[in-house]
Nucleic acid binder design. Sequence first.
RNA 1: GCGGCUGUAGCUCAGCUGGAUAGAGCUGGGGCUUCCUAAGCCCUGAGUCGGGGGUUCGAGUCCUCCCAGCCGCACCA
Length: 641
Amino acid sequence: MLSDFKSELSRLLADRIETLFGVEYEPIVEVPPRRELGDLAYPAALHLARILKRNPRAIAEELAADFPSPVFVRDLRVEGAGYLNFFLDRGLVAGQLLSEPLIQPEAGAGDRIVLEHTNINPNKAAHIGHLRNAVLGDVLSKVLRALGHTVEVENYIDDTGVQLADVVVGFIDLRKMTLEAVAALPEPFDYYCWDLYAEVGRWYEEDPQNQELRRQTLRELEHGSGPRAEMGRLISRRVVSRHLATMRRLAIAYDLLTHEGAVLGLDFFSEAFEQLKSAGSVHLEDDGKNAGCWVMPLSESEEFAGLEDPDKVIVRSDGTVTYVGKDIAYQLWKFGLLDKDFQYRFWRAEDIWETTVDGEPEHPSFGQADRVINVIDIRQSYLQKIVKAGLEALDYDEQARQSIHFAYEMVTLSPATARQFGFLEDDSEEAAGNLEMSGRKGIGVKADDLIDQLEAKSREEISLRNREMSPEALDILAHQIAIAALRFFMVKATTNRVIAFDLDEALSFEGDSGPYLQYSAVRALNISRRLGEAGLPTQVSPAEVAALPPEVWADDLWDLILAVALIPQKTEAAGDTLELSLLARHALELAQKFHAIYHKHPILQEQDVAVRSARLATMQVFVEGLTVLSDLLGLPLPDRM
RNA sequence: GCGGCUGUAGCUCAGCUGGAUAGAGCUGGGGCUUCCUAAGCCCUGAGUCGGGGGUUCGAGUCCUCCCAGCCGCACCA
């Protein structure tokens, strides 16, 4: 693998620098901007120039002279200001890529990771902002698993919160509906709730007195008993079921649903609270604005320096627990630091385990993580820091370090799309910027609507070029293309950038898009099929590849092979930095190179066997690389388009 | 006020721990289908990298000060 080649070269270079100059140096390797400059570039001489006070070019020449090049190095040159550039044996690298799996994690090296994502309030339909969370979380789970970690994916359901309470109020007090009537409402239930939730918001505004009903409902939800709690359970159940169905459309699944109701019902907090108290991390405030509250001081942590209020309330003066308190308890459970465990029940209809207060005796084991990753939007950074500070306060320093907030920016609506959906009154506000989505106001593009539109668009495109497809095949293909378009759209954006969602852009299947990647794979498949039909070999073996004469490896082919060789490093980088867009962009790069080769280096018509073999081998390497990346990104590769 | 993020081509964005001529996609213009599907490819146009100063042999990248925009800083989640 390329990384092996790299590390061997780096080691040889470090040795040489040590013997020649007596300097300890950790070589850095780069990829030259243009292929003719080389395959791997070491700027070592440029770095050494300062230490040795010598001309970098002269240093490079000295390093290059009599360099003990291994067999896979074809040439070594000094370029530019003093770069040491290596040219590799192309056939050797290509053969290697075809002979072993691209990504091979070391056995037993993986961590046990609890990864929490999606976490949609169970009171309304999922919107495109939630999709960003779910897709990022899902891709991360695949990346971490590929790197050898054991990943448990949890979806946290806040079934005792204000948002659910509001919809309960909507059904009981605004609509005056019974449990039976609500149970009998037709699907899509989450769409119904979407509108009702917004309506309740307006109702509160009309008469703030109505908010008393919210408080009463919230108390009942937290307590878990009474007609309002029962209504809450029904709503939450039906809405979560819809969310799971939406996510299933995108091939996103979970190992465990964790319910806030269970965290409360099993009183996780009381034990966490005892830990916090005996560690002296919280104290009862006896005067000031937080009088009567248990607070956690944050002033000692430099992270919170300059904060106006250096204390965080954990237990309110009325004795109830804040969100942060619950979250610290939950985080402790994830690490196995709480003496309590959930009860578990298998939700058969949804084929998933969930937490409860009275569960089944037999169940898999959950939690006990080495590392915890919470996929939550960036606005929650402050709260996630407090949870971390809570672990630190309990001297769980290692777990605090392993508490990772995977933060990503918001999804807003572009002015054009906001207008299209009627969220901007008229076009008088020409200069209107992006519109923030708001469940409370009913502003947003629902996930299922978007997927429906993407499928419709796919069908349209397919029918333009493929008239004789069966309806079943059409359904499957349209769906594959739609989810690739959507998933790719969400992953290609860097996490710290706000996505201004534009429907037309999302529906574009050209250029930087999932379908573009799929199309490149379809083309490769077609070539294999046509080769077979023509009675020509459809595969080249690694041994044949290594034996090909060097001149058959045109630069275009080699570029693509090198790009595939870089996939393991890109994957590691994505896992380390949580910047998953690296993978999306790298996949694009592969597809772009392949499409170009497709036009420039035809395989089927090529008469020269060696040349054809090299092209075919490159295609095999490409398919291998694209398959790996598509699996990581969760993009299905259809067999035709 | 304190903290975080963002500012690169007409639009949407890449740019890896400072390094070789700042790159894609879309849009505009022009080409390419008797030859592996044109959801593609090729050509073409367009940039004071928000602004000033600094560090460096070398700055889109690091430091500092401004300017503009977005987001956090509850006994809400």
